[in-house]
Amino acid sequence: MFKLLRASLLMLLVMTVITGVLYPLAVTGVAHVAFPHQADGSLILRDGHVVGSRLIGQPFDDPRYFWGRPSATSPQPYNGAASAGSNLGPTNPALADAVRQRIAALHAADPGNTQPVPVDLVTASASGLDPEISPAAAQYQLARVARARHLDVARVRQLVAAHTQGRWLGLFGEPRVNVLALNLALDAPSH
């Protein structure tokens, strides 16, 4: 029994060194040579400051910006330190209330808009950090953003198209628009 215990402890130690130390260090080492930007979080820099990550969404509720998916993180939405979904069930009245409020907020920011609201714009994402919206959700907000910024709708549409990604190989995933990148492009001085 003692021999078995000793073998177990030593085996655990050896395996810990291989899988718990050497393996992650090897991955980190190669990753930082081959993909340094991705390994460090795909950060977006402006004048040397980090203004966000391409992969992590930010909260927007100003009519001048495109809004992202509703976020269920707490205490504030898009809290990167505590990712979370709402976990509300499909028949939970609290979900209906939340969706009703989100529709109302969208209508309040854009009273003339009578299009049906795309589902991803009023439902909370799984992570609470979803960086993207569907092209339908971007199109729904186009006129509002253009009006709030006194920009030509065609110009804004062009920007949305430039920040839209299709399915991978035209097959996998869903088409989507990166909200933070689009809003940063709107804020860029050239417009």
Binding site: G85, R100, V119, T123, A124, A126, I133, E174, R176
Partner: peptide
């Protein structure tokens, strides 16, 4: 959500369906 007038139809521009708790991509 259908009763609330939310557009859940799949199209070229959105996945549609039950998107609560799902990621856009």
């Amino acid at each position: 959500l259908a009763h609330l007038g939310v557009d859940q139809h799949a199209s070229a521009l959105q996945a549609g369906g039950n998107m609560e708790g799902k990621e856009t991509r």
